[in-house]
Every structure is written in structure tokens, then in C-alpha cells.
Write a protein that binds this DNA or RNA. Structure first.
Lengths: 185, 185
DNA sequence: TCAGTTGTGTTGTATAAACAACATATCCAA
DNA sequence: TTGGATATGTTGTTTATACAACACAACTGA
């Protein structure tokens, strides 16, 4: 028990920053977004940004994990089903997020963003696998999570290449049987 | 010169409060809105509300004047035209505001709200009249502003009685010639 | 009628956020 | 190449906000 209870000001400020960042991402591409842009929109001081985030990549990372968690059904996440709906919603979240991040090509940042996305996916998959297969060796679960994170990310790259001629849900649907085969271990 | 520059936190907090109040007004009627409702939605402490506003009526008052000023074309307001468009936009703002405030009848608060609305209208009309007729006696301008505020408010009551079967713009249009005759002094 | 609940308004103290000033890095055009 | 402009981080001090606790008013239903 005994949660420390975070100060509401902290929650509010982080929310303001994240929301502003998401909105800005829909307006222009990642590399053109400055800290000042974000803090102006959020109506907070630039120095306060650094009180909460190390840099803009830290923000990206946390915004992404936020988006992923929100899109996942919390109860399902807790219950560790890792079923079809989970894959679809994770993929959809990633696809949407990338869509909003990159309105145009942006060389030189893709790698960083890609890494961050994969890391977040990895964390989520690993947790879910741990609950689904509690007796499996950690090494195996980690490897599976790694492969899943790369696989899902790759699928989103592929989807983006076809320029969303298909809904993300529809796109990933066909791949799910193969994924599920893989994770039965 | 020399503006004191208000602390951004103050501006931000007031905005959060006002926005939350406006949103809540669209969900339920005025008498059912508590300070806690507002501050929860705004993610601020209840005590902070009292740092900025005396009570909920003070908030109502300032939210209203905010709404009115935003709906008025700033440049026009500065230039003191007091023309047809001004009347239409003021009436529309009042009508919309009342619409959002009172989703159902709420006895016992109507008088207070009505008074607040008229007071705000009075202030705006008086300022505009002063600029349009700088040489006129103050007493005359005040009386005119009073009559205009009551008149416009009365029109909004009448409009609401017909339950918005007509757009506010259309409704007030027909009355404008008579109003304008009155203010030529 | 009265007790329980809910809302209002206030106060002293702890803390997050604003600010200004600074150093450093990056970029770009002259 | 240089210098001006713009962006990133950092720090010490001031100030707005959170919090907890309180008194009190208004309502409710038993």
C-alpha cells in the first residue's frame, strides 16, 4: 500500500505538455517542433519542461507509452490475454502515432523514433508474455518480445509505405495468425 | 506604458477555470454546478479558485464578459462603430450563453444571472457610446446604455421563450433599425 | 426536530512553477 | 570563416498553487 500521491500540479503540467506535443505533431513534423513551441502552447515556462523531461526524446518516449497504454484495454492488459484485439489495438496505436508524427519524410530522426517505438513495444510485450507464460525462461520471453516489437514496428513501416490505403485494423488482421503461432512458444 | 506583466500561471489557471465552467454549463444547469466540479475538471485545488474569484457569481460575471469580448470584433470595439454587426454579435453571444447556462428552468437564480448579464452589457454599451458620442453628456449616455442593455437582454428572453425556433442572428435583425434610431441621440 | 451529508469560504505552511540570467550548441548567410 | 540568430540545457530566487484543517451554512430524510 501507501502510494506517495503525486502533486496534482505535476500531473496537470505533464498533461498540458503531452497534449500540446500531440497537437503540434499533427500540425508539423517532429524535427521542426521546438521545446519553446510546446511550452508556449502548454502555457508553461520552458524551464519547467526540463523539470519533467530530460529532453524532447524523453517526451516522445513517454507520450508514446501513454498513447499505447490508453489504447490498450486496461483490464485486458492486467489480465494478460495478449489476444487478437490487443494486437490490433497496439498496431493501430503505433500506426496512428507514426501518422501524426511524420507528415513528411524526416531523415535523421527516423532511427531515433523507431528505436523509441520498439523499446516501448518491447516493454509492453514482455510484461504481457510474463503474465501469460509465468513459467517460461526469462531469456525466451525477452527474445520473443524483441521479435514481436520488431515485427509489429516493421508492419507499421510497411503500412505507412502503402500510405494508409487500408485501415490499420484491416492491414494487421491478416498477419495475426502467424504472430500468434509464434508466441505460443 | 509599463504593464506589470501578469504571471503566466495566473492566466493559465483562470483559463482552465473558465473553460471548465463553460464546458460544465453545457452539461448541466447553473444551479447544479459546484466549485468542486469546476476545480476538479480544471485540475486545480478548490482553494485556488478562491484566490482568483470571490464566488461562483464572480466567475459567471467574468466568464460572460470574456465571452462577449471574444465575440466582438476587437478592432471594431476599439473603433467604436456600434454598427449592425456589433449588435448581432452581442445578441448572439448573449443568446448562446444563456442557452448553454440554462438547459432547464432554474428558479431563484434567474434574477442574479439576468442582473449580471445586464451589467456586462451596460459596461460594453457605455464604452462604445462614449467613443461614438464623446461630446454628449455622460448622464445621457448612461441612460442610453441602460436602455440598450435591458432591451437586448429582454430580446434574448423573448428569443428563448420561442425556444430558438429562429437563429439568434435572424431574430435580432428585425429589431436593429429601431435600436439604431434610438442611439442616434 | 435533529443528525448526517454536502457545499462554501478561509488560513498557515510546503512545494511546483516562473523568471532571469547564463553557458553552450547549431545553423546559416555574408 | 565569422558573427548573428536561434535552440538547448542549467541554476538560484520569487511566487502561485496544493494541502490539510477548520468553521459554518444549506439541505435531507428519518
Amino acid at each position: 500500500m501507501s502510494e506517495p500521491k503525486t502533486d496534482p500540479r505535476i500531473l496537470r503540467t505533464r498533461k498540458l505538455i503531452m497534449d500540446s506535443f500531440i497537437e503540434l505533431s499533427e500540425e508539423k513534423e517532429f524535427k521542426d517542433i521546438t521545446i519553446k513551441d510546446i511550452t508556449s502552447k502548454a502555457m508553461i515556462n520552458r524551464a519547467t519542461f526540463y523539470y519533467h523531461f530530460q529532453d524532447i526524446y524523453d517526451l516522445l518516449e513517454r507520450a508514446l507509452s501513454e498513447v499505447l497504454l490508453i489504447n490498450l484495454d486496461y483490464s485486458t492488459y492486467g489480465e494478460s490475454e495478449l489476444n487478437n484485439e490487443d494486437f490490433v489495438s497496439i498496431f493501430k496505436a503505433i500506426a496512428d502515432f507514426q501518422q501524426s508524427l511524420s507528415h513528411r519524410c524526416h531523415r535523421g530522426y527516423e532511427d531515433t523514433i523507431a528505436r523509441i517505438i520498439r523499446e516501448q513495444l518491447y516493454v509492453i510485450f514482455f510484461k504481457m508474455l510474463q503474465k501469460k507464460h509465468p513459467n517460461e525462461k526469462e531469456k525466451t520471453l525477452k527474445l520473443t518480445a524483441t521479435m514481436l516489437s520488431w515485427g509489429i514496428y516493421g508492419a507499421s513501416v510497411e503500412w505507412r509505405k502503402n500510405n494508409s490505403s487500408m485501415a490499420p485494423e484491416e492491414f494487421i488482421e491478416s498477419a495475426i495468425p502467424f504472430i500468434k503461432q509464434g508466441i505460443e512458444l
